[in-house]
Design a protein around this nucleic acid. Sequence first.
RNA 1: GGGGGUGUAGCUCAGUUGGUUAGAGCGAUCGCCUGUCACGCGAUAGGUCGAGGGUUCGAGUCCCUUCACUCCCGCCA
Length: 594
Amino acid sequence: MNKYRSHNCNQLRKESVGTDVILSGWINKKRDHGNLLFIDLRDNYGITQCIINKDNSNFKELEKIQLETVIKIEGKVVDRSKDTINKEIQTGEIEVVIQTFNVLGTCKELPLPVFSDQEYSEEIRLRYRFLDLRRKKIHENIILRSKVISYIRNQMNEFGFLEFQTPILTSSSPEGARDFLVPSRLNPGKFYALPQAPQQFKQLIMVSGFDKYFQIAPCFRDEDARADRSPGEFYQLDLEMSFVEQNDVFKVVEKLLVNTFNEFSDKKLLFNKFPRITYKDSMLKYGSDKPDLRNPLIINDITEIFSRDDVSFEIFKKLVKSGSKVRCIITKNTKDKPRSFFDNIDKWAKEQGASGLAYFTIEKDKEVSGKGPVGKFFSKNSIEEIMKKTGAKVGDSIFLACARQIELEKITSLARDKIARDLELIDDSVFAFCWVVDYPMFEKNEITNKIEFSHNPFSMPQGNLDDLNFDDPLNILAYQYDIVCNGIELSSGAIRNHIPELMYKLFSVAGYSKKDVEQKFSGMINALSFGAPPHGGIAPGIDRIVMLLANEKNIREVTMFPMNQNAQDLMMNAPSEINEKQLKELNIILKDKK
RNA sequence: GGGGGUGUAGCUCAGUUGGUUAGAGCGAUCGCCUGUCACGCGAUAGGUCGAGGGUUCGAGUCCCUUCACUCCCGCCA
């Protein structure tokens, strides 16, 4: 028998009554009655109540031991009387009478209580992450993460995918996020980059003829953190398939996600077949390329209305003339909402940096009219036209924003979310997945006015390749797609461009010469010219999937050892200074600090 | 880089209009308690009110600067 335990802390049941057992674990809680002491012993699996009284010579010593000390106890399993059964824990029908005990690991005074429902500052939690991770909720989150990853791995294997590892030390990529760099000792003055994603490698795997690849891949991007974005590193289910079209990728991923979410969450999927929304539609109807489809509100463009003579909303009309657009959100049957409801939203919009949200409610006495601050600016006919365009009915309200397209998308997107929350329209008990498809290949950088790749430069453009109009690059669409769930971007992917000549052309549109491309993507271009299969893939974010399944709003709640917002690991003290010898070996001289 | 929020005991927080010696719960220490499961009861210790400066007779409280954490914008092909 193992010297530390005969059972774990969640194993003993009524049937074990009378047997001698050895348990080891942490002291979760003590209840000291003076001559009788209860100890809740906890391990990964659960809790067992152990008991000792003053007749035992160990009593005095055990009474003094700190919470979270690791002990081993030997004792006998006994029945609990009916009125002392604890239904909250699975071992609640029995308890263990302690005969002897040993301390296996002592514990100093705790900087944070482990057994408590209190919330703690991130700083203290991250500094003492090993204690934080003992707490029930996050402990379970991390176990969930393990199970989800294992499940996904099994599914992928079943689907016929092969798992490969790709290099962690690789080359810096000119497109995309900021790289993490690693100096090379053997090549002074040169640097490796940590991969932002195994993008080029997975394409090379396809060129190598492996057909279907996946990896739970670490990705490194040196960008600022958000609640749903860890600084530094995160994990993707990276996958790639040969001889496929967009639909083939969709089929695999839909199946995987539907299975995974059904397996690990009680929430219902709103769509088993994910709706497909074009990027253009998404930006118009939801103001965002990551629409939350739980939210029934839809944005409508009613710019035209403001060129009518019977509309006298002069501020908007003037803005429209100078190129702004007007978009609106209809709320159903809100005529009886108090004035404060509307004003709060307007006030909120101003706080978001917009010039506010105008609003009125559609009423009908003898004929329809607008009630509310700006209602008087709209004639009966113009309101009827709005109703026709937007599906609004009498009793509904209309929120209007006017701005240039990009700002307008931003504010209407935020307003859509805000209004739905205020009206409690978002069903929190479902997952609403969708595909966002048909991304433009290029976009214009607003500041530099230059044409840039809008997403992945290796994506395949849509349409007949011979007819592509490179003089009008902004209208070229790509086989580029995202998966969004409840307004969170879960992954993006694409059918790749496997034709070198086409790649040169596309890169030239974005201002790269043939030489640039050959230099920066030599591995890729070279490979594609030796018989590359058509291929495509996607890379769902593991952390975000687990976050949704665990019903958490912050990615650190599903990450074992996350860094803080400043990309520091407070527990391991990273990043840290390094010594002169190391610097010298790496040929690095630090600039003097101020 | 910019904006918002927070910062008071080991932890979570309260602290009125600027006014005597800065409080509570949990935790710690000590004592009492044989059926608790957030056990109960009593006592004790524990504070650079994030830091620095200013206004004031007097600052946890008002002002300025700064630091830390966090949320958001930028950024994230």
